[in-house]
Write a protein that binds this DNA or RNA. Structure first.
Lengths: 330, 330
DNA sequence: TTAAGCCGCGTAACCGATTACGCTTTCCGG
DNA sequence: CCGGAAAGCGTAATCGGTTACGCGGCTTAA
């Protein structure tokens, strides 16, 4: 099996020039419809395909889009990402583009960040999507900005006006707080990390409490931390009768621990999570959750990026509305 | 902000030739350690980075690895994939390579398959990982084979001897069957699809039954189908007292439906899933499952691919052992 | 002392596409 | 019937690297 044909060989075979072949494959330049048809047909027949690297080189870009997200852990999959990815792929397939994914460590190690920055600078991508989260995401935005690379960020980032799909975390948490207040819960707790201040704030607003009036337990984004948070609360604040968790993974871990300690949910303690990942609704009890519409967010991010790639320049931020989905756990 | 420097400009600035610069960045060719140090240092200082497309063009390959997997659905994330992806990323990061992911539709649409084949043929990748599943995966292997592209498949595929990381589905199912028999269950059911014949066979062996002696309900890979399967069984075979589901997603859906119909698990009906995805262990009751060690499989696939990229040629298939993880649902 | 060999590096030919430019032909208005 | 515009296509420069080859200088062995 010999080498794949180059455009030169292919062109000679058809008795046309390489320029014509190239024009047949790109929508650019003037070429008669008849010739294009003939060339495309022959190409399919003979299995000719333009070499993608040569094409990228002369065009100065590849059309690839990259996804950079802070990887929470090496141990557990990130379900938040999984949902967004679904939306991203959906939109991307419509556009006929491909996706390169690049996890970068949450506790941004210098080498890993350098590697990411390298990819941003070396022209690998025509555009990138950055999921906000760790400190690293900020650096990546700066890298993209200073390279003139089109980017869109998912989530809020300080000092960033546009080019973002925003999650309405605060309002979502507010809805949960309001709900707890209206259903007569008196002793609220919040489980989350330092990155989720907005959620806590919204929660307190909804509850009508000051931020130091509620119980807070630390938690990142793992089942285990959710379970640990339950134990912490159980030990120190047994009066708690409702909790908002900064994500569903925490909530699921929390519920698991609570049930196995004999508590009844929602009778003894009501639980609401965040993100509305798929498994939540199939738990028993089914988990109430603030739906961020992550799939839609992924889609919107790609669409926004597509607009920028289409030459639209910086773009206004969009906010995706959220809902409180009530199920059995509250 | 002007264009990024090219190798020519950068070389002149340092007073060396482009060849020397190139040699400093690749491990190839002879160059004194002192010069390399100097060049690399200056490059970092001035922000020079070799253009990736030019490099790919002259080297004839990009070092990128692609992941092709059958996307079950546009609606639900694929947790099986999520777990494997974790392992793949883990290994890939060690190798410093990047991953492009390419879902292809389960019900392989012609255009989507053409797009995938196109990417395989146009030199986008140095190697690819193909997740077996739909009919499409077979075609992709053929494409890779006839293009001389290094590939590794995850899962079993007919007519394929090597270059694969195998899942020991049959044995896993056998373990589950044996367990049910030993714990006195009399009326087994199996829920799964046509792609999972091996699981059914192993299950029956473990049970010591013929394949037509057990109850079978159809199911693909969604929570909903799991719930539907429960209803089907409940209606037509209320005597069933244990089920094996072809994946955890089905199992979770099944459990949910069973519990909401007032059945007790495992007292009335014992449930075992497949894949041991993360959420399973945090359900209530925690789901027993056949662990395929998906994360490890992802890692092994990448390692195998790396060996092939290193020039090892076709490689023997490896099988990753599986375990039956017993939790509360059985 | 000299031939052989290696080291370190530069010159220039590639890799396989895109595209600016120019040439021929056709079309059309005046 | 003529001049100019536009359509259709070919030639060759270009994208930014890699690498085969060659050359001078230094080391080593005879």
């Amino acid at each position: 099996m010999n080498r794949k044909p180059t455009i030169k060989e292919f062109a000679r075979l058809l008795g046309v020039s390489t320029a014509t072949v190239s024009r047949a494959f790109n929508r650019t330049g003037r070429i008669s419809e008849a010739t294009r048809q003939r060339i495309v047909a022959k190409a399919r027949e003979l299995g000719y395909q333009p070499n993608i690297h040569a094409r990228s080189l002369s065009q100065g870009q590849s059309g690839a889009v990259g996804l950079f997200y802070p990887s929470i852990s090496d141990e557990e999959p990130d379900y938040f990402l999984t949902e967004i990815l679904l939306g991203i792929n959906r939109s991307l397939q419509r556009l006929g583009r491909s996706l390169q994914i690049h996890p970068f460590p949450f506790q941004a190690s210098a080498e890993a960040m350098d590697a990411c920055r390298g990819r941003i600078q070396d022209g690998s991508f025509s555009g990138i999507i950055i999921v906000a989260g760790a400190r690293g995401s900020q650096e990546l935005v700066e890298a993209a900005e200073s390279n003139g690379l089109a980017y869109v960020v998912v989530g809020r980032m300080s000092g960033l006006e546009g080019n973002a799909v925003l999650l309405d975390n605060e309002r979502g948490a507010l809805l949960a707080g309001t709900y707890f207040r209206n259903t007569g819960r008196r002793h609220p707790a919040y489980i989350g990390g330092s990155l989720d201040r907005r959620k806590k704030r919204g929660f307190c607003k909804g509850l009508g409490r000051a931020e130091d009036e509620i119980v807070v337990a630390e938690g990142g984004s793992s089942f285990r931390q959710g379970s640990l948070a339950f134990e912490a609360i159980r030990d120190r604040h047994p009066e708690v009768d409702c909790v908002l968790c900064a994500n569903d993974v925490l909530a699921i871990g929390f519920v698991k621990a609570a049930l196995s300690h004999g508590l009844r949910i929602p009778a003894d303690i009501a639980v609401v999570g965040f993100d509305d990942i798929r498994p939540s609704r199939y738990m028993t009890p089914a988990l109430s959750s603030v739906s961020l519409r992550l799939v839609e967010i992924g889609e919107r991010a790609v669409e926004m990026l597509a607009r920028r790639l289409g030459g639209e320049g910086p773009v206004r931020a969009e906010t995706v509305e959220c809902d409180l989905i009530l199920r059995e756990s509250s």
